[in-house]
Amino acid sequence: MQRTEKQEFTTSRGTRFMGISLLIGIPTLLIFSFLLSPADDNMDDAVRLIYVHVPMAIFAYVAIITTGIGSVFYLWKKSRWWDTVAHASAEIGLMLCGLVLVTGSIWGRPTWNTWWEWGDVRLVTTLVLFLMILGYLALRQVPANPDLRAKRASVVGIIAAVNIPIVNRSVEWWENNTLHQKSSLTDGKLENLTLFTLFLGFIVVGISFLWLMTHRFRVGWLAAEIETEGIAGVIEERLNEANSGAANPNYQQKDDV
């Protein structure tokens, strides 16, 4: 199959717009985080980490929920589009989950005086979520029939998404077993520039998520095309070769060599 030049790229007007927005948004967020917003009375400079930690945590949840939704729709509709969405979203979710754990750990050291607290349900369940997505992606890499692999990965994706409420509500459910603070947004303690910077963080991380998601989806779609249509193309090529070989007396000689 002859592919046009346009199909070989994963960019579009929309992704270019998002990319340019990020080129402006990321430096702006850094300026607000490190220079313009004040240090916190209790957390001191460690508060600056929440401008990326909290948005990344929220979008990690969004990514895994998207994987769950994509998985449910794949099992329901058997559509490759939904399967590609689930796969792309899981990869971004894994990256965000990993960054949440790293930034959370760095934040925890000065605030809780420990890099890691095993008694904290939210921390532990976020790590578990990270490991579950790792398992999901390991399953996606197994060489197998794409439909069979997608079907099984969908079930793992649904379980990962179902695990989200356990992660998110764990602080409220088992308050006695956690060091984790309650939601900074809903308790209304954040004000003015701190709140603005946090929302700026949400916008920047949100656009990053959409930008990565779009590109990863298109790469995944092309990879799936190669996997399915590529095999069909090779078979067609071989059949043509065989047919032309039958008509061409030199073909047999070439094969013998």
Binding site: V124, V128, L131, M132, G135, Y136, A138, V142, A144
Partner: peptide, 25 residues
């Protein structure tokens, strides 16, 4: 889920153990 893929022995623990981690805690 892990069966019939030729990698069950290695894939099953990778998929199964994280799921059970909160239960173990």
């Amino acid at each position: 889920i892990a069966s019939g893929l030729g990698v069950r022995e290695t894939l099953l623990p990778v998929l199964f153990l994280p799921v059970l981690a909160p239960a173990v805690i």
